[in-house]
Computed example of a mutant assay.
Amino acid sequence: MSDETSAAPDRSTLRLALLVGGLVLAVLLGFGLGRLNAGGTTAGSPTRAADHTHPPGTQPHDHGSTTGTDQGVGTEPGGLSISSAGYSLAPLATEFPVGRPGQLQFQVRDAQRRSVTRFAVVHDKPLHLIVVRRDLTGYQHLHPTMAADGTWSVPLTLGQPGVWRAYADFTVVADDGSQTAVTLGADLVAPGDYEPSALPAVATSTTVDGFRVGYQGSPQAGATVPLTFRIDAADGSAPLERYLGAYGHLVALREGDLGYLHVHPEPELVDGQVRFWLTAPGPGRYRLYLDFQVAASVHTAEFTVTIP
């Protein structure tokens, strides 16, 4: 009797163990099949949002600011706001006497209103400053210097009365080493009677400082297309030199809101010509400003283009 009584608990324990083991196995199998059916990723694998490439010539940008629906093209222009991406442009003064040399001073501040002092060097400079009157005349490409407290300074002369737009184009380096490219814009004022100039007619060639400059290509809204510029001197030769690390710099400003695009060319000349890849954010009239250097002197050729 005692032998039969002692054997019964052993059989119950065995049945319980088999039941629990079966349940555990079923859960594990179900979890594994669910992962396979869901196509889940493991740690370290790329997500779909990062699985793409940029077209040639694309500037550093925030993908959240693109107008393209699924290809990341049609980047919105910069400089439309005094604050963006957690940073603000803070000019120390915004009014300048007409035609007299002045000093533009400003700071770049973070979300806590602290002056930013760490910037990446992009095309030989930590900050590029573009100044233009709101009728798109008086273009200037300047390079301020920064003091230890983060205050930038640059000599500036506003040659005509009116409202001018200043664009600060820079890349901030965060404490963790990450970089954020930002373009901020602020208005400057030269008091006096403002008589806006009409935008020059559309043309693909112009003459500046004795150089004949022309381009081939048709900018399109929301598409990245090549623009190839040729520069010839009066004697037929114009040996281009690198200026700020490139054979040319192209700024495009949109009439109306003055949206800003700064495009850099391919690293080498193409049959002696400078090739850019331009992504126009939308239709409208634009003014193109091409900076190029010959014999240690920088020149700027300007064009009007209409994008349908």
Score class of each variant (00 low, 15 high):
Y286F: 15
L16D: 13
A38H: 11
G57F: 10
T67Y: 08
L89Y: 01
G259T: 04
P60T: 02
T279Y: 10
R118C: 02
D271Q: 14
L14I: 14
V24G: 05
P219S: 06
L104I: 04
T180F: 01
G68L: 08
Y247C: 05
P191F: 09
L19A: 14
P77H: 00
D3A: 05
T279M: 07
T117A: 06
S83E: 02
T171F: 15
G68T: 04
L16T: 05
L92T: 02
T67L: 01
L29H: 00
E266T: 01
W152R: 02
V27A: 01
L288K: 05
T300P: 13
F96P: 07
G78Q: 00
S6P: 09
G78P: 08
P267D: 02
P191W: 11
H61A: 06
Q59M: 03
R287L: 11
Y87F: 15
S81L: 07
A7H: 00
D169N: 02
T47G: 15
Q160H: 09
L28W: 15
T180W: 06
I231R: 07
W277P: 03
E302L: 02
T41M: 13
L278V: 03
T171D: 15
G72W: 12
G150P: 05
A90K: 00
A186M: 03
H52D: 09
V298C: 15
S81E: 09
L19G: 12
P265Y: 08
S81R: 06
T41P: 08
V154Q: 01
V189W: 14
P281F: 11
V172F: 04
H54R: 12
H262I: 01
Y286E: 15
W277N: 05
D124T: 09
F211D: 01
M1L: 13
L16Y: 13
E195Y: 10
V154G: 02
G222F: 14
L18S: 11
V270A: 14
V305A: 13
A7D: 05
L33N: 12
A295D: 12
V73N: 14
G72S: 10
S115W: 03
T279N: 10
G248Y: 14
A238F: 08
P308N: 10
E266W: 05
Y243C: 10
P239W: 06
T157P: 08
N37H: 13
A301I: 08
D110K: 06
A246W: 06
L18R: 09
T47F: 15
G21W: 13
G282T: 05
Y286M: 15
D193A: 08
P161H: 13
A38W: 12
A26Y: 14
R242E: 04
L36E: 06
G236H: 12
G162Y: 00
P56R: 01
A85D: 10
P77I: 03
D10Y: 12
P281I: 01
S84Y: 08
D176C: 15
L250Y: 06
A49E: 09
S153Y: 04
T41H: 12
W164A: 01
T300V: 12
R114L: 11
G79K: 00
N37Y: 14
T145H: 04
L261M: 13
V225N: 11
A17N: 13
V24E: 00
P308I: 02
G57I: 02
G150M: 06
V132A: 00
V122I: 09
I307W: 15
G214D: 14
A190E: 12
V172Q: 05
F229S: 07
D271G: 12
Q105V: 01
N37L: 14
T306I: 11
Q71D: 13
G79N: 08
H143C: 09
V208E: 15
D187S: 08
T41S: 11
